[in-house]
């Protein structure tokens, strides 16, 4: 489900609890947020901190491609 918050109801965006980090094989070409994309890759489980962004994920898709 695309993230949507009430601009007058929320002091800040809520972090969704059904999110998964996706690391793509190639540089991502930006698509509008309301366009569905299907992605596939290798599922990795366990804590991992991205050295470049500091983003912590417990589960992620790596080497991903999308269409």
């Amino acid at each position: 489900m695309p993230m949507a918050t009430c601009p007058f109801c929320e002091t800040e965006a809520e972090w969704p609890n059904d999110i998964i980090a996706v690391y793509t094989k190639r540089v991502v070409e930006v698509r509008p947020f309301n366009v569905k994309i299907v992605t596939s890759g290798v599922l990795e489980l366990g804590a991992y901190t991205d050295p470049a962004t500091g983003f912590v994920s417990m589960m992620r898709l790596v080497d991903a491609t999308y269409g």
Binding site: M1, P2, M3, A4, T5, C6, C9
Partner: peptide, 9 residues
């Protein structure tokens, strides 16, 4: 009810 409406869900 409001939040799910905001999400269009």
């Amino acid at each position: 009810v409001d939040h799910a409406n905001h999400a269009g869900n």
